[in-house]
């Protein structure tokens, strides 16, 4: 009797110990993950705007830095935000559309060269568009000589480059989802007189909405955070995306502009973080199936 009791007692104690360790690790992990962000938030409301002598709870906290940033003539921050959102939205919507029609074709049609094309798409995605950025730059420069609105320093040119990466792992991912939709659905829709396009658009596409959302969101986030291509393509301050504008701004006298940078960072990060937290389960499912951020 007493033996069993002590056994149960030790098991309970073990459980309690385990819980205590788990909670300790959780607290430490959260401090590790969030301390820098908390520090950044504190910097953003510190009107001294300097890296020097920053305190966790700033005296005379105010939104001065946010105001400076939003009204700055020298650094058109609002413009950068808008550019980033515009470019990322258009790029992700078009990407998802092109990915969907391509994946649908791969899923539903049987044609010569289908397998080799699929394999090519798989191999090509290993060499991301940005790797050939020297060639891309020269190409866009040349395109711009012929079609100025698609050349260097234009958002259309930048979006075009992002679309170049559309035939990649996402086509595979979405094809997998189309494959799970029974073909009977297509057939009965066509039987009812729907064209192939109507079948695709009204019957099949609504069924794969979740994966489309995931791909759209990941493309949006990847484009929003890209620092290489906009740097090469965009030349005027007015045209910069947030990534380029904010970093170039931060590279000038960083420690004296620390608070302003922090304010800009948070304003730039909040939309993305919100997206993440709201749809994290979807995103995780996308990520674990090989879709990449960026």
């Amino acid at each position: 009797m007493s033996e069993t009791n002590s056994f149960l007692g030790s098991a309970r104690r073990q459980r309690q110990l385990k819980r205590a360790i788990q909670m300790t690790i959780a607290v430490l992990a959260i401090i590790y993950a969030l301390f820098p962000i908390v520090w950044l938030v504190s910097a953003s409301i510190d009107p001294r705007n300097s890296l020097n002598q920053q305190q966790l709870i700033p005296p005379n906290a105010s939104f001065e830095n946010y105001r400076t940033l939003l009204t700055s003539e020298l650094h058109p921050f609002k413009r950068w935000m808008w550019n980033s959102i515009k470019v990322s939205t258009i790029a992700s919507v078009l990407s998802v559309f092109i990915t969907a029609i391509s994946a649908y074709a791969f899923s539903r049609f049987r044609f010569t060269g289908r397998r080799s094309l699929l394999m090519t798409v798989f191999l090509v995605q290993v060499f991301p568009t940005m790797l050939t950025f020297v060639a891309i730059f020269l190409i866009v420069q040349e395109i711009g000589k012929i079609v100025p609105w698609l050349g260097l320093n234009t958002h259309a040119g930048l979006i075009l480059i992002y679309l170049g990466g559309v035939m990649g792992i996402n086509v595979w991912l979405m094809k997998g989802f189309f494959d799970t939709v029974p073909k009977d659905l297509d057939e009965s829709a066509m039987m009812d007189g729907a064209s192939q396009w109507q079948t695709f658009y009204y019957v099949i596409l609504p069924l794969v909405r979740p994966i489309m959302a995931v791909i759209a969101i990941l493309t949006f986030i990847g484009t929003y955070g890209d620092f290489l291509l906009p740097q090469i393509i965009l030349q005027d301050k007015e045209q910069y995306t947030l990534a380029v504008g904010l970093i170039i701004f931060a590279r000038q006298q960083f420690s004296q502009n620390w608070g302003t940078f922090a304010a800009g960072s948070l304003m730039g990060a909040v939309p993305i973080v919100i997206i993440y937290l709201f749809v994290q389960d979807y995103i995780v499912s996308g990520l674990t199936q090989g879709s990449v951020k960026g």
């Binding site: 992990a29 959260i30 993950a33 969030l34 820098p36 962000i37 950044l40 910097a43 890296l51 986030i221 929003y224 955070g225 620092f227 990534a243 904010l246 970093i247 931060a250 960083f254 420690s255 620390w258 940078f261 922090a262 960072s265 730039g268 990060a269 993305i272 973080v273 993440y276 937290l277 994290q280 951020k293």
Partner: peptide, 18 residues
């Protein structure tokens, strides 16, 4: 714990510079 990954890297890396 997801938050460090959710914020675009250009922001967080520059933050770490500070």
């Amino acid at each position: 714990l997801l938050i460090p990954y959710a914020i675009p890297a250009f922001i967080t890396v520059q933050m770490w510079r500070g």
